[in-house]
Design a binder for these strands. Sequence first.
DNA 1: ACAAAAGTGTTCGGAATACACCCATGT
DNA 2: ACATGGGTGTATTCCGAACACTTTTGT
Lengths: 233, 233
Amino acid sequence: MTPKNNYCYDYPRPALTVDCVIFGYDASDLKILLIKRGIEPFKGHAALPGGFVREHETLDSAAKRELMEETNVSNVFIEQLYTFGNPGRDPRGRVISTAYFALVKREDYIVIAGDDAAKARWYSVGAIPPLAFDHAEIVEMALNRLKGKIRYQPVGFELLPEKFTLSDLQHIYEAILQKKLDKRNFRKKIDKTELVIRLNEKEKGVAHRAAYYYKFDKKKYENALKKGIYFEI
Amino acid sequence: MTPKNNYCYDYPRPALTVDCVIFGYDASDLKILLIKRGIEPFKGHAALPGGFVREHETLDSAAKRELMEETNVSNVFIEQLYTFGNPGRDPRGRVISTAYFALVKREDYIVIAGDDAAKARWYSVGAIPPLAFDHAEIVEMALNRLKGKIRYQPVGFELLPEKFTLSDLQHIYEAILQKKLDKRNFRKKIDKTELVIRLNEKEKGVAHRAAYYYKFDKKKYENALKKGIYFEI
DNA sequence: ACAAAAGTGTTCGGAATACACCCATGT
DNA sequence: ACATGGGTGTATTCCGAACACTTTTGT
């Protein structure tokens, strides 16, 4: 039994949704999670995962809930991106959407497939299909934000597992900044932050010299932040 | 004649407002425009100018309209800041507010006083009174955004008249960054951008050596932006 | 042996910083 | 004459960019 027109106001009100741009990294490629829409409008199109904000939840919790529903991960980097509210962005009527962007680690996520929700799939940012609504614009803004953010915040680690190689890290920077970086200069810069610690453990079974694993010292980073020390990478 | 409950929906919907953090610069001081609330809740408190988004306008136009109503200026720098939507931020019910921040030139603005709208007044950012709702949080975020933005975008000029002295400009940077800058180094940096042009005109009637006026070469800046050239100041 | 990626130092130019004195103007 | 802020140059340090070869591992 669905309610029928039980909520009445003196003035028209828009519907409020959140949409999530979820980034992942995999096989040297930066990816975005998209669902396939099962209903009109834009049925069959790819779209950002999202949904209505509930009556008693904050925007942040709505975004986290949507993220959780799609990927089964919690405890990830998530941040408000921008609010899109042009009349006409949704053919069904006035819908305001606050977009979020999230960074998830490949080791954590489990994409829910085949349940009643639309199917989710990862797409390389270089090969994003036509999107429903104004979602292409949202994705573009998220990519720009990420590009800007990575210069002054160590967000690359949010996309990597606990243990990673410096080449992995460099590939993430290259994918986000869309340019090649010099290996020696990159390592010098990472080294200088003193936030990335080499472990006594190497890759195994690779057909070349095995790389050391490293980990990000998150506690040290957060303590430094509290003291007002900033990092540029 | 006001409408009564003519807009009905199946699910509850929040009300949608915009609030503007309007910055100005005056007497070596960075200022914010605040109104005094004439009605409950928070009657008598200072608050950010803002209001409801209308049915057929974009968020941006709603913000520009509010700005225009308060200051009579158009054609200013205005940018979306963040959307605040915690349940409970407004005691009257669920209200989502998209905050904007604007930079206005002192020469342009005319604060409307004594009309039916609440009275507006400029407050130094160092002496902001207790604010209604969660507006203190909004102002804090706006200040941080401005502080971050001024490092890579020439926003200082948006607060100054067409003709300004380099000391004016430096004072703006100092007010925003909250630290003293070295005069010679500051001028070297401004000079290097090649975006600030000295005019053949000096201050008059000052009790010290008269300073040259300068102007910002906005066209050159915008052309450079199109070519993908960025400036850090 | 070879293919493939890991790992490592030095040089150079430009930018950031620190710093002190004389100049023009009104009172 | 003096008070007030305007205007200017140099030396030093630090950071970013460019650049090539040896090592390790699996096939």
